[in-house]
């Protein structure tokens, strides 16, 4: 089966003064459509950098990123912006909800970015309805008009998940989505992600340093010394 998203020979270094610090030293990784892949590794192993490059937030020094066998990392900035909006959904460890907006408006944000004023005005009811449905789906139908500061950690992450899904992406990139939650909330968020993965056939790249969470993915890979060191079957 052809991979949905693939990284081929990704290399990335950072510079600390005159010293080059290699983070990725030739990463090859792929995920099939609907597959949930967990990337584990120690802190500083380059997990987040890999996720950022896959999600076109950062550019590799070398190597390519392919989606449906098409290279996407060398596209012009405007296309990459559009792909981040249409193709990818991002979930961050610290939720990163915009504090000026309500939970519902946060969820609507990908659609607001996609639409100009006029096209939003024409489709405002549909956009609002879909965002509200997503909030319903993550169990926060009663929190639509609440500000992020009025939500608990788990609720904020659920809102962030709803926001990640609002652009109808086919690939979800989650960076330590449970890292800032207690065990019960974390498990709840993970269950939600797993359900969405199955329901919507979403391809998921899940970065975590917690093996227990990683085990719930279809496949687990370990990133160490800037390379994918070993493939670990899930549920070991």
């Amino acid at each position: 089966m052809a991979s949905h998203i693939a990284a081929v020979g990704l290399r990335k270094s950072y510079w600390k003064g005159p010293n080059e610090v290699p983070v990725l030293r030739g990463v090859d990784l792929e995920a099939e459509r609907g597959e949930m892949v967990a990337v584990v590794g120690a802190s500083g192993s380059g997990k987040s950098t890999l996720l950022h490059i896959l999600g076109l937030l950062d550019a590799p020094d070398a190597g390519t990123v392919l989606v449906d066998s098409q290279r996407i990392d060398n596209r012009p900035e405007r296309h990459r912006d559009s792909m981040r909006n249409h193709l990818f959904g991002f979930i961050f460890q610290f939720y990163h909800l915009l504090p000026e907006l309500t939970a519902l408006e946060n969820v609507m944000m990908p659609s607001l970015i996609r639409h100009g004023a006029w096209s939003y005005w024409k489709e405002r009811r549909r956009i609002r309805h879909e965002a509200a449905e997503l909030m319903q789906r993550v169990g926060l139908g009663h929190r639509l008009d609440h500000c992020p500061t009025e939500l608990s950690g788990g609720e904020m992450q659920r809102t962030a998940i709803a926001r990640a899904l609002a652009g109808r992406p086919s690939i979800l990139l989650a960076d330590e989505p449970t890292g800032n939650l207690d065990a019960a909330s974390g498990q709840g968020v993970l269950d939600l992600l797993r359900d969405l993965n199955r329901e919507r056939e979403l391809t998921m790249m899940l970065v975590t340093h917690d093996p227990h969470i990683a085990q719930q993915a279809d496949r687990v890979v370990r990133l160490a010394e800037g390379r994918i060191e070993e493939w670990v079957p899930a549920l070991l």
């Binding site: 999600g55 937030l57 900035e77 405007r78 912006d81 559009s82 792909m83 981040r84 909006n85 249409h86 991002f90 961050f92 990163h96 915009l98 944000m109 990908p110 970015i113 996609r114 926001r163 652009g167």
Partner: peptide, 9 residues
């Protein structure tokens, strides 16, 4: 965050 969600420069 906005850039991650697709906001342009």
């Amino acid at each position: 965050v906005m850039k991650a969600l697709g906001a342009s420069t």
